[in-house]
Amino acid sequence: MSVLKVTDLHAAVDGHEILRGVDLEIASGEVHALMGPNGSGKSTLAHVLMGRDDYDVTAGSVTIDGEELLGLPTWQRAERGLFLAMQYPVEVPGVRLVDFLEAAIRGRGGEPNGLTVRLAAEAERLHVDEQFLTRGVNVEFSGGEQKRAETLQLAVLEPTFAILDEIDSGLDVDALRDVARRIEAMTTEDRLGVLAITHYARLLSELRADRVHILMGGRVVASGGPELADTLERTGYEGLAEDLGVDELAVEVPAEQEPEFADPTEFALPFEEPPRTT
């Protein structure tokens, strides 16, 4: 039995405070849903827990079984049992999932015995086509394939606690069910503790939450049982904020939309003046 405990966590980006005192306590086998509107600080919380160095933690504590994780580099937090399923898993060209997982298991001090067999079994369970195991990690995966692959990694690496950052985004009904059921099974079979970050209650129809927390303005403004998600479904975030007397829903500076250019150096001819590059 382990406990992931977040106490009065404050974090800022470029001097702008995004997390303003977050408290959570998750025990092995429990599923906690963290819900909140856009910009409420959900993804920031996920990355701050995992130790991404873009954020300055200004106060608070994050422990697993009393051991402080703040100050540890990301890989050591993973070694202590933390796993982050990313909202946007990163493409790693040329690194096959099987080699990636082997490195991860060794990094955690394990031996990747029987990895291939386990991978094949998990791939079948999650309906991941085996060709994805030998391709570059996440390269040219669809949204659904990425999330299935994140779940597959989670199942193989067997962490103590998993943070799922919008694991339900970009998933169709079938993929959502496969992913949610696999994670649910881990919570009962392996006593995995879960912090499931999501916008929508629909994830919770597949993955039963023991506790639901509402994050607004960088704070947990309400916590309750699964019925809190139902309330939210009825009222929406703004209605709930009104009921709770919360003024500020979003704290994050809206991310600047990166303009999408086609690669400026790629073009087709004919044209009159061939461009030259320097």
Binding site: A78, F100, A103, G107, L157
Partner: peptide, 11 residues
């Protein structure tokens, strides 16, 4: 990419 690998426990 580096961060992604590190979240898996890879040094």
């Amino acid at each position: 990419q580096l961060y992604y690998l590190e979240t898996r426990g890879i040094r």
